[in-house]
Write a protein that binds this DNA or RNA. Structure first.
Lengths: 327, 327
DNA sequence: TTGTAAGCGTTATCAG
DNA sequence: CTGATAACGCTTACAA
């Protein structure tokens, strides 16, 4: 029934509301032992549960932060989220995760909803399409940390990886292994990570003196990917290696290979940008570029926590290094 | 700065707070067109955002529900959660997911925290170890739906699958394919699903007149699983088939097989209880028992929503059927 | 050491 | 059609 309030406890214990409040907030310093016991008992008898909503209204903080992930189907997002949750959990703050589903409109809704719910801060994997919203938060000095993707033309606190450099390295690795016909598959270039990865690919090819064959570059939605792969492999000179821009792309590639009876490692070599949980279980094992999701999440959480607590933090871009895992 | 309140808007628009409140809640019926415009403009000028916390305090509902999953690493949990979120999203309610990590203490914390935050209802994948807490909610008639696991000795609304029967069927399927030495691996029997699955296994074996070899039954924590598998396969008569009690177990089995150079389909046949996203990508494909996660989530959400809206619902157990997917 | 009273930003009631 | 005014359940000066 949940109707029992602090006033009820106070009455039952024969003290005032403020005393009960003190008790609940562990301000025992000046509290009589008997008072303490009386209150304790009253609480137990009535089954009293404090109402955090009321507390939040007064204190102007909710002890909640929001995480808005661009797409929860990416393993990377869930790993980062777990790290953030763990950190905040240790600090008595609850992190709530929302999935924007790569949809700027949904992202907007969530940002507004969470702010209306008065969350103390936000960690956002931005879709990149809500520039004004992002900017407002910065201008208002609302605690926010951007994750994974850069926001253009904005001095904001953000955590990213060296997408370009690590892709560069991966391509160089392919080249060292003798590959010359290297293809690259990525989702539409709407966000910085994808652009940077493609940049890395192109740069590596150029630096090694290989002319880029635009037929080898697939830029397509997940739903169109297989059709594009079909075309790619029907070329008179199909590629011998393929770089998958992320884990979603990779799964499509894997299905495509299976459906068309092509064998991994024999018909095509693969590198994937992302943490694939079962990469080492596939035969032959797949080479992946892994981002330090846990560390990134932790760092984001630390920074947000500091910001929430009014620490001055300059809006820099923090770059983590990815690693090529040759399995 | 987020300081602009309804009072500010009221002043700016030259009306009273109540009028602004009406406006915000779309109660235009008796509102003058000019007033409407004035308020609209004031809101825009000041960049006013309503404070849901204050609203919730007054209305005694937060438009939030909580989902407490036993372990978010199970694919099943995330699928169910997505379904629940989708349903509530359509009804203007925000679902927040918490991960109890199979830890009854964490579960308790989350239940208490979420209730303190005044969520309108709860969907719980119970660890099973917080009987009193569960009972309290039922007694108080707090809106709660249990998912996946039965709570013992409690008349509660819960959504489960026919764990016993579908395991039975799977084992019969193994037997039909000629297997006689069938092993069964499961995590500790602390929850109903695991017990029921083991029951199904035993029953099928008995019904087919096969004596159960207790060496073929592994009941162990994830961390001890490989050691147990090692023992299992070192038996003078190792099994020819293995039933994995869930997806976590399955991953361990897969790793074990790989590490010990055993081949799926050749050295051992496998059935997994759970939705494995890449089951069809493994070679040879793995047979899985899938539960209708989406439908189950949707049903749970519907029931909770009804309860929240004071509909009388009798505390029954709703059983969904799983399906064997022979890939 | 404990009590009083004034908010926090809304919504609800009812009068104007 | 609009405006006072009183809640909602808690925290927090300040008073006693």
């Amino acid at each position: 029934m949940e109707k029992v309030t602090m006033a009820d406890v106070a009455k039952e214990a024969g003290v005032s509301k403020s005393t009960v409040s003190q008790f609940l907030n562990n301000r025992f310093e000046y509290m009589g032992e008997k008072t303490k016991l009386k209150i304790e008992e009253a609480i137990k008898n009535l089954g009293y549960q404090p109402n955090y909503i009321a507390r939040s209204l007064k204190q102007k903080r909710t002890s909640m932060v929001g995480i808005i992930v661009a797409n929860i189907m990416h393993r990377f997002s869930t790993e980062v989220s777990r790290a953030i949750e763990d950190y905040f959990h240790e600090h008595g703050i609850h992190a709530i995760v929302c999935n924007a589903d790569d949809d700027p409109q949904k992202e907007k809704n969530y940002i507004e909803m969470l702010r209306a719910k008065q969350v103390d801060g936000l960690i956002i994997f931005p879709t990149g399409q809500n520039h004004d919203l992002y900017k407002n938060m910065i201008v208002e000095d609302y605690p926010v940390v951007f994750m994974d993707r850069k926001v253009e033309n904005l001095k904001a606190l953000s955590i990213v990886t060296d997408n370009m450099q690590s892709t560069y390295n991966a391509i160089v690795y392919f080249l060292k292994r003798g590959h010359r016909k290297i293809a690259f598959a990525v989702q539409p270039l709407t966000i910085s990570t994808r652009k940077d990865r493609l940049e890395g690919y192109k740069k590596a090819m150029k630096d090694e003196g290989i002319t880029i064959n635009s037929d080898y570059i697939i830029e397509a939605n997940i739903s169109d990917l297989k059709a594009n792969l079909e075309k790619l492999f029907s070329l008179s000179e199909p590629p011998t290696a393929l770089f998958s821009g992320n884990d979603r792309v990779f799964l499509e590639v894997l299905e495509f290979l299976k459906e068309t009876n092509r064998a991994l490692g024999k018909d095509i070599d693969l590198i994937v940008f992302d943490n694939i949980p079962f990469a080492h279980l596939v035969e032959p094992p797949i080479t992946v570029i892994t981002q330090p999701a846990f560390e990134m999440g932790k760092k984001a959480a630390e920074l947000l926590f500091a910001k929430i607590n009014k620490t001055e933090i300059k809006p820099e871009e923090i770059v983590f290094q990815s690693k090529i895992m040759i399995q």
